[in-house]
Design a binder for these strands. Structure first.
Length: 589
RNA sequence: GGUCCCGUGGUGCAGUUUGGAGUGCACGCUGGCCUGUCAAGCCAGAGGUCGCGGGUUCAAAUCCCGUCGGGACCGCCA
């Protein structure tokens, strides 16, 4: 029985089959539905995580929903005409039953079947132990465990060493807001919980571990979302004497093992595009490539335009195939409002109609401001056909891409469980995401230990234009439009590192105070190294078709960071505070 | 910090637009009947701070203000 039999049971509820007819077995589980037919006959569905078994008992036995029973009886063939082909155990039933009530149960506060999907999530979380009894949640957690296990096996097989890093670490002001823990032995001082084991894994490389990995818990005190919890799990890895391709290969192998563990199609080679191309074609650094609707560049068409709104650095368009009929004027107004909220000055839309003399014509409130040649060029470049709806945005390159990228998702994005699994590597991220206008300092796009592209190092000495053109050896893994994770080749040479710190305006003393231990470690012989981290919760959710990572986390928190089960967070008493050397400010300050 | 949506017996909903008795539906629960059901069936019954507070009104689930809780999103998440 594959290890499922115990002192208390011989079989799991989902196991008995016709081949075992005649044997006497004992099963344990929870009472599902009962069907009573008077004092002489009742059917009780006994349930555990493997399935359901119908037990035929005397109708005078008082068992209720969710009572915990041990039932000993004979596996019997069901009488003719009563076989239930919807159940794996439906050919048999347990007869001559001896029922022992192991625990009584109050009626559950919500139905423990698929109808629970409709129940207020707070109620599910308040009684999460009941929610977990449901088949869907059992399935989610068991598949998650299989995925974790497959990832560990894959990493072990690739020669990675699993290392645990500390949870109580020094706070660093960069990046996400830390959760902090007051120190009793050092009043007035605090530990931080790790946002990621970033610095420790690099130290592991200096320490000669060669290949490190960990399924690490990370904590960030930032607002929660459907795909973000305070605490989350990452597959975190780092490799010595390795470059980008090595990391991509290792991660691909691990992710492939994860997909295979839940019966997905082999992922094959993951396509790769540059950040620049991703922005150009999809308007996003995490493109959802389950559907096309790519951005088309129209800037050249309008170099000499007389239409003021199109005298812009970048003009792009997308085509909603056959969208004209299904899109009302009201909807177009809503989309225009959305585009403005996303930062655009406006949104130009054009309905594509059959032209009198063959071909197509474009109908739009702004068509009268454009020349025949311009209209023809738009239709031609967009490949517009009658019935299509075209959208154009004109602005600087970044904003044009961003707005059309969001519009593309709004118009075409499939549901979470449709369109298969479309992984994508996005490479050559810019080293800096912006240059601060007042200070002239570049703003790092990744962390400050990210290696610039070798051929772009010279650009570090240039002005804002050159700085923004510097590519980094940083890469993201994207799945169906969700950012799964990111990584980079790290700087291991002191002179490059100090150049970066200098550019970012981090003085040597400051760098020393924040990262001194890492910089010191690098003075003792740092191997070139590169790494990656990706969110396990997000991967599991997407593999299981969940649109929300709470569905694949046993005990998640609500959007406001509370736990309805334990009522965390809560106050602590005065003595406790005093021991930690803390005093609360009055409320409302 | 901001925008939007939701809150009515244990659960899911209708009722709110246009104020008029806690009115209705399904599931669950309790009791009764029932020897082949599997969403069992039939009969009867219990169960309510309409999230909370204030206001308008002869009268508030319904209108107004505030507040709490939940969700989606923007900001934020190196």
């Amino acid at each position: 029985m594959s290890g499922s039999s115990t002192e208390m049971r011989t079989h799991m509820c989902g196991e008995p089959r016709a081949s075992e007819i005649g044997s006497t077995i004992t099963v344990c589980g929870w009472v599902g539905r009962r069907r009573e037919h008077g004092e002489h006959l009742a059917f009780v569905d006994l349930r555990d995580h493997t399935g359901l078994l119908q037990c035929v008992v005397d109708g005078s036995v008082d068992v209720r929903s969710e009572y915990v029973l041990s039932v000993t009886g004979t596996v019997s063939a069901r009488p003719d005409g009563t076989v239930n082909d919807k159940l794996p155990t439906g050919e048999v039933e347990l007869t001559d039953c001896t029922v022992e009530v192991l625990s009584v149960a109050e009626p559950p506060p919500f139905p423990l079947d698929e109808r629970a999907e409709e129940v207020d999530e707070t109620i599910r979380l308040r009684h999460r132990y009941l929610d977990l009894r449901r088949e869907t949640m059992q399935d989610n957690l068991r598949k998650r465990a299989r995925i974790s296990s497959a990832i560990r096996s894959s990493m072990d097989g690739q020669g990675f060493v699993e290392v645990e890093t500390p949870m109580l670490i020094a706070s660093t002001p960069e990046g996400a807001r830390d959760f902090v823990v007051p120190s009793r032995l050092h009043p007035g001082n605090f530990y931080a919980l790790p946002q990621s084991p970033q610095l420790f894994k690099q130290l592991c490389m200096v320490g000669g571990l060669d290949r490190y990995y960990q399924i690490a818990r990370c904590m960030r005190d930032e607002d929660l979302r459907a795909d973000r919890q305070f605490e989350f799990s990452q597959l975190d890895l780092e490799m010595s004497f390795a470059g980008q391709q090595d990391v991509l290969d290792s991660v691909t192998t691990a992710v492939g093992a994860a997909v295979a563990a839940v019966g997905g199609e082999p992922i094959g080679d993951i396509p790769r595009i540059t950040w620049r191309e991703a922005m150009d074609r999809y308007g996003s650094d995490k493109p959802d490539i389950r559907f096309d609707m790519e951005l088309v560049d129209l800037t050249e068409v309008f170099v000499d335009t007389g239409f003021n709104a199109f005298k812009a650095a970048s003009i792009k368009g997308i085509v909603h195939r056959g969208g004209s009929e299904s899109t009302s004027r009201n909807r177009l107004d809503d989309l225009t409002e959305s585009a403005k909220r996303w930062g655009a000055k406006g949104l130009v839309w054009m309905r594509v109609e059959e032209a009198d003399g063959g071909g197509v014509s474009l109908s739009s409130p702004i068509a009268k401001f454009l020349s025949e040649e311009e209209l023809a060029a738009i239709a031609d470049r967009l490949g517009a056909e009658a019935g299509d709806l075209c959208y154009l945005v004109a602005d600087d390159w970044h904003r044009t891409c961003h707005v059309l990228g969001l519009l593309r998702l709004e118009l075409g994005r499939p549901a979470v469980n449709e369109g298969g699994l479309r992984f994508l590597w996005v490479v050559d991220f810019p080293l800096f995401e912006d240059v601060d206008e007042t200070s002239g300092r570049p703003v790092p796009a990744h962390h400050p230990f990210t290696m610039p592209h070798d051929e772009d190092v010279a650009l570090l000495d240039g002005g804002p234009e050159e700085l923004l053109a510097v590519r980094s050896q940083a890469y993201d893994l994207v799945l169906n439009g969700w950012e799964l994770g990111s990584g980079s080749v790290r700087i291991h040479r002191a002179e490059v590192q100090s150049r970066i710190f200098d550019l970012l305006g981090i003085a040597p003393e400051e760098a020393n105070a924040k990262f001194g231990f890492l910089l010191e470690a690098f003075r003792y012989g740092a191997p070139p190294h590169a790494g990656f981290a990706f969110g396990l919760d997000r991967l599991v959710a997407l593999l299981l078709g969940a649109d929300n990572i709470r569905e694949v986390i046993a005990y998640p928190k609500t959007q406001s960071g509370g736990d309805p089960l334990t009522s965390a967070p809560g106050p602590i008493d005065r003595a406790h505070l005093e021991e930690l050397g803390l005093r609360l400010l009055p409320q409302g300050t």
